[in-house]
């Protein structure tokens, strides 16, 4: 079926072009120039923006789910991501931001660096229900992110950093703390675990003799940096005293297959706080 439809369409085009090679050359030159102009224009346009919101974090933390909830107003089921998702979100005040969801797999998470330079905010998504089990791995990832933020050139305004204690609904609340809001509980747990693990990393790397990178020319700063703190706690790592800037925390949860309606249910606040945080970003 498809063939007879295509053939008559293709034939006149090729025969007309073949008849006059000059026309072909001229046309192709014109198209080429047009393409260059358009691509340059688009590139300039996209670079001048710098209002990207980056979603980073370990795999299975829920980055893609949060992105789909924000963009499609419903939480689609998701698998481990293989590549970066980029979507545009229109906020209530008619501003648009670009949301970039960087996969969390260790082998591809370095794609973060490609997007960091035009990031307005970095949202580090953590699975609050499993963070106490794999805290070390999460901290390693967060360390990389912190390091990347602090090693941005000083002229660059550092992006706001938000740590999202996601899946707060899966957190098992003990009888004693049942009264506490699950979001708050999730935030506390994530903060405690990450501070402990990052402190471990900081201690281990301070004063350690590292191994030179192969063929490193010295322009690359050491991997260990990025955890400097100054404050009353004597240099030990606290998010409140981190030198790279302010760190905020939020607790969220989404339910797969659910549609986000205007009126949120009473139980969990879902991601409404996150949407609000995005609205309030300068």
């Amino acid at each position: 079926m498809a063939e007879p439809e295509v053939a008559p369409e293709a034939l006149p085009v090729s025969s007309a072009l073949a008849a006059s090679p000059q026309v072909l050359i001229a046309a192709s030159l014109f198209v080429a120039l047009l393409a260059i102009a358009i691509s340059l224009w688009l590139r300039r346009k996209s670079q001048s923006r710098g209002n990207t919101i980056l979603f980073v974090g370990p795999p299975d933390a829920g980055k893609t789910a949060v992105l789909s909830t924000l963009v499609y107003r419903q939480t689609l089921p998701s698998h481990t991501s293989l590549q970066t998702n980029t979507s545009v979100l229109t906020l209530l005040n008619n501003k648009t931001v670009t949301l970039v969801d960087v996969p969390g797999h260790p082998r591809i998470r370095d794609q973060l660096l490609d997007h960091l330079s035009d990031a307005k905010a970095v949202i580090f998504v953590v699975d609050a229900s499993t963070v106490s089990r794999n805290g070390a791995a999460v901290a390693e990832h967060l360390h990389k992110v912190l390091h990347a933020i602090t090693s941005l050139p000083p002229s660059h305004t550092p992006p706001a950093l938000l740590i999202l204690a996601h899946k707060s609904d899966l957190l098992k609340t003990g009888a004693a703390s049942a009264a506490a809001v699950p979001d708050q509980l999730a935030i506390n747990r994530v903060r405690t675990v990450l501070e402990r693990e990052l402190e471990k990393r900081r201690v281990s790397q301070s004063g350690a003799v590292g191994i030179e990178g192969l063929g490193a020319d010295g322009e690359e700063s050491s991997e260990g940096a990025g955890l400097e703190c100054n404050g009353p706690s004597g240099g030990s790592f606290k998010f409140a005293e981190w030198e790279g800037g302010e760190v905020e925390f939020l607790g969220t949860s989404v339910a797969v297959g659910e549609k986000v309606s205007a009126e949120e249910k009473s139980g969990g606040k879902g991601i409404s706080e996150l949407s609000q945080w995005l609205e309030e970003l300068p």
């Binding site: 893609t64 089921p77 998701s78 698998h79 991501s81 293989l82 590549q83 998702n85 969801d101 996969p103």
Partner: peptide
């Protein structure tokens, strides 16, 4: 059986 985007979103399963 699952059909999904490389970015991770599942279209149908």
């Amino acid at each position: 059986c699952s059909i999904f985007h490389k970015g991770g979103l599942v279209l149908w399963s």
